[in-house]
Every structure is written in structure tokens, then in C-alpha cells.
Design a protein around this nucleic acid. Sequence first.
DNA 1: GATAAAATGGATTGCGCAATCCAAACTAGC
DNA 2: GCTAGTTTGGATTGCGCAATCCATTTTATC
Lengths: 204, 204
Amino acid sequence: MSTSAASSPRRLTRKGQETRQRIVGAAADLIFEQGVARTTIEEVRAAAGVSSSQLYHYFDDKPALVRAVIEHQSDVIVGGQETFDLSTLEGIRTWRDWVVQHQRETSCVGGCPIGSLGSELAETDSQGRDQVAAGFKRWEASIRRGLREMHAQGRLSSETDPDALALALLAALQGGLLLTQIERDTTALEAALDAMLDLIARRS
Amino acid sequence: MSTSAASSPRRLTRKGQETRQRIVGAAADLIFEQGVARTTIEEVRAAAGVSSSQLYHYFDDKPALVRAVIEHQSDVIVGGQETFDLSTLEGIRTWRDWVVQHQRETSCVGGCPIGSLGSELAETDSQGRDQVAAGFKRWEASIRRGLREMHAQGRLSSETDPDALALALLAALQGGLLLTQIERDTTALEAALDAMLDLIARRS
DNA sequence: GATAAAATGGATTGCGCAATCCAAACTAGC
DNA sequence: GCTAGTTTGGATTGCGCAATCCATTTTATC
């Protein structure tokens, strides 16, 4: 969690931090549900139960709020990722099952919180894009840690490049989530992850 | 290319068809560059060199125009896809190289024209989402045709399910394109496609 | 408990942009 | 060449929404 950002208030009261967090949380939910462009400041204001001036007290403008949301979602996702151990085939399967199950439980709605943001901002907000890229880097590093461990312990063939595999796994997940979100069906996500699992098994 | 759509004018003059096409092309370019929400009717109007009333003569409203753009992009992509033969490992490698090269040439800007649209519309325009899903289905079918052929001719092991593999390949491509777009670097795309190629080779 | 800073309330402003309207000028088909 | 339908011009409207403003109340610090 990189602090920084919101210019004006340098010292935040405990109460202020709570309010700020409430705004970020509400914004994150709304943006996850309907994207940045279709989420209005008014909606965020109402959902967070704050006044307009409060919102602009904590964030310079809408882009600044979006930046805080990206940071928030990165933290949530990377935090979640680190509860899984990807250094064994069994662990990767457990992770795969969790991801698929989670999509089923949410009716395949929303896709990946970071991926969707990245797609929307990529060509219009370079600062936002950089931030999403940094989030992906952290995520990738987390996956890589597992595969490197697997490789070091000889459970991945020595010719295998664990770093490239980590990137491929993240890509397969992203593509699977996108197709799953659009088709409202986990088939694509399962096919993508199972293909990667099969590859990893064959390289064991 | 499914016709239909724009309510009002049932009979289009040649001139009318040209104008309509010009609008769709301009809209497709702009939307590819900056997304649906950030593309204004005024921009499309100027780029296509038409008047406001012309635009609303051919399309009921902005969502209708977006629908025409989705249709257009689906046609372009599926058309392009069909110039490749995915029934041999060699052919798939050629396709992989083309995709990567294309991203390099465009500086990794824009991502996938359909994927980006799908991501933006998924939760806010169910009609648009359905249309993107249909586009992906066509794309998937095109890939599947190659892999089924490969399977039938014994160049893919009999235990392999070519349909699931086609879906996984499309997902890897989408995820690779998304990461590549955000990181402005083709490494992820290459890792994703190469992983799938390796899997296919190992299943040959 | 005084005072400076921070947090909150809510009305208001101004503009970007989708969409409408009323013509006028073409293009078919008979 | 007449007329019904199609295509085009461009001004205008109206609203959604980001952002500003001026208070008032609360919290920290000494």
C-alpha cells in the first residue's frame, strides 16, 4: 500500500482516515460494477454517505479517486493471492478451483477488478495505466515466487523458465476471466487454467 | 456481417450505404483508440465528415452506433483470422508471430478491438455484451476449425479435446493482449502464446 | 479552554455532450 | 419532369455530472 496521493490534507485524523477509506471502498465497489466512466461522483458520495465537499477534501478530482481505487484493488488482489501456495501442483489446483468457484458464486459478473480497470484506462489515462501495470507486476511477482520455488525444488523441469510460466499463467487467467465475464460462463476460464495446469504437469 | 439494426431507413441508397459505412469506420477507429465512453458523437461526426442529423439518420442513438461498430470489428477480426491455417504447428507459429509483430508495429496500443469493447460494455450494456459474445463465438469457431482438423489428422493426441484447446488459446491470446497493452511490452503476449504452443507441441 | 487545522454540509455553477428540430437539397422510379 | 422518399445542414435544447464555494462543526495541540 503506497501512501502518498491526495495533495491537500497532509495530516489525516483517525476519523479522516476512516472517511477516506469509506469513500475508496464505495468507489471501488461501484467502479467494479459499472466501470469508471459510468460511475458518477454523486453515486460514490451517496454510497459512502458523505457530502460532496468531503469527497473533494480527500481527493483532488475524479482521476485522483480512481488512482486510490487502483491502489486499493491491487492490495486486495495481491493480498488474496498470497494466501495460496503455488509451489506445488496440488496448490495450483487448489488456486484454480478457488478462482473458478469465485466466478460461479458471483455469476461471472465483473471480471478481474484490475484487468477491467486497466482495459478502460489504458489509452486515456497514462498515469492510471502505469499504476495498473505496477499492480500486475506485484501480482506476477507473487505467482513467480511460487513457481520459482517449485523450480528450485526440482518439481519443474530444469529447462522450464518459471518466470515466463508465471507471466503465461497470469495471462491465461486474465483472458479466461474476460471471456467468462462476457459469456457469463466459466467454461473459458476453466479451459484456460486447465491448459496451463496440464502444461505445468507435463513439465514436472 | 449481420445486416439489420438501424431502425428508420429501410432502403439505403448506394450513397447512403457509403455514408453509413464511413460513420461506422470513423467510430470504430475512435472507439478503438479511446473507448466508447470517451468517444463523443461530435468526434465521430467530424472524423466521418458528416452532419449531426446524418448520424442520427442512420443510427437511433449512440448505443446503436456502438452495436454497428461491434459488428464491424467482429467481421474484421474473424476475416483476418481466417487467412491463417491453424491445422499445423507450423501454421500456428506463423499466426503467433504475426500477432506479436502486429502488436510491436502498433506500439502495443489498443489491445484487442473486441476484447476492449467487451470489457467496457460487459456490465452496462447487455445487448452489447451479447453481441461481443457472439463475435467471440465466431472467432472461437474459426480457431476450433483448425485444431479439429489437426486432431482429425492425428497431429494432436487422441486424448486431447480440440474444442477446449481452442478456447484456451483464445483466452491466452486475450490475456496476453491485455497485459501487453497495459505494460506496453509484448513479453506477456509472447509468454502466453508460447506456453500454449509448447502445450500443443507436447500433445502432438 | 483557546486557537489553528481538519472535517463536514449542502447549495450552486458551468460545461460537455447526446439528442432534437426544421428546414433544404438531392435521388429514385414512373 | 413530377413526386415521394432519402440524404444532408446546422442551429438549438436540455440534462447529467464534475467541480467550486462559503459556511459551520469537530478534533488536535499547548
